[in-house]
Design a protein around this nucleic acid. Sequence first.
RNA 1: GGUCCCAUCGUCUAGGGGUUAGGACACCAGGUUUUCAUCCUGGCAACAGGGGUUCGAAUCCCCUUGGGAUCACCA
Length: 471
Amino acid sequence: MNNPVRVRFAPSPTGFLHIGGIRTALFNYLFAKANSGQFILRLEDTDRERFVEEGVEQIIKSLDWIGLHPDEGVWYEQKPGEHGPYIQSQRLNHYKDYAQKLIDKGLAYYSQTIPEKIESLKAEAINERRPFVYKHSMEPTEAPASTRGMPIRLKVPDGKTMWKDEVRGEFESNHEIIDDFIIVKADGFPTYNFANVVDDHLMNISHVIRGDEFISSTAKHALLYDLLEFDRPAWVHLPSILGPDGKKKLSKRDGDVNVLEYKAKGYLPEAILNFLALLGWNDGTTQEVFSPEELINKFNIGRVQKSPAVFDVNRLDWMNGEYIRNKLSDEELIEHIKPYLPEAWLENMNYFKTVLALDKERIKRFDEAKYIMEIFFETPNVDKALLCKKDDIDTIKSWVSEVVKAIEPIDFEHDQVEKALRELAEKLDVQSGRLFYTLRVGLTGRTEAPGLFDIFVTLGKAESLKRLQSL
RNA sequence: GGUCCCAUCGUCUAGGGGUUAGGACACCAGGUUUUCAUCCUGGCAACAGGGGUUCGAAUCCCCUUGGGAUCACCA
């Protein structure tokens, strides 16, 4: 590892950036920063059919929000860098050049066999229960009159290719089972396998860090590096992220959605990053919460896991609550929850802050703030069945008038209210918890709320009495 | 089916020949003499199975089983 570390995140704009993509980007980013290297964003848009118009913008916005900013490559305004352009559709000349070099050396050829023919050959092979591997020998013997509309295939030589993965170890592939795979499609665009190798070489990428679904095609890449006489990069394949069933890969319904949806739900980028970093990596200690800086300082590839990890939203929620409680100042919290709340709630900032002090530790996601704080800003609908769960309505009515009498004259201060209500419970000869339940429901319409005396004090005498009397 | 990969509590994981197999999330119980939350304490819970190697295996080897990835003119 004498060469400078340069890694890239190379998504294809065929949709939105999902959790899995962010995890890959994160490990690249962490590795770059941990080794004073560069983190590059490149776009692999060689699939014209699946190209999504807003894909590029979405990718940049997602990475921007989550805090994984590239040092080089594609960004709102392209980042400076000597290896551009960083969008593959703008680099066609490079692929063409290298493909031609391969053809000149007899290592690649225009393939005359039409797709339909290949399909039938394949069907035949499957029928006879033998593997299908497309080879040069299946091509027509006479040279084509024109190469127009023909893809270029690599002429895979006899032999075998060995390569090493930094987390899984050594791999060896016999060329007998490697297709003469297509490197340039009929439309003139390169395939992933080819563009990837050419670009990683041209951009001096030192480590290719990507999802493990690429393991099986890495032999092709290694072979291409050798044939093109490029120096090979180090390969690092990350374990996949699974859905809650622990079997299938994380899918849309399990939460593998556009990461901006996580923003909308009120997750903190730092919490997501922390959570994701621990999916397939740990520092060997029992530490669970890491700031981005700590992650950078402690990250190393040697501790990347081999086996896949299940995405557990429960743990993400815990982590997010942890960050809200311990890492956010009140001012920062307010900025984050503001978008979810009616503006009117913030008009009286002192009151708002008093409420927030009571509710801060109960918020796990910002989108929950409205529901949690609501009882202090809106008159609740009190469900009669809930209110009368422990005592009948007549009893409650008599209690309420007693309560009103008891607290009307006192100062509205936590201990005073507590004293008055406890004395009243004793006087009425009722268990305090029972009386408090009724009052809590009467005041908030809920069984879950902050401490009862805090509710009284925060609401104030007038509002408290009003709510009780309206019962 | 071919090729390849993986395997410790339900989940994320520590542990790499000798450990009461540790921590965290979730869950349960108790406490903070009002609920929920927070916080504290405690509890439940794992080495997939079988063979080796070894004085000794969760750890090393083999097989089985289970799971996964991939076999595109997608990336």
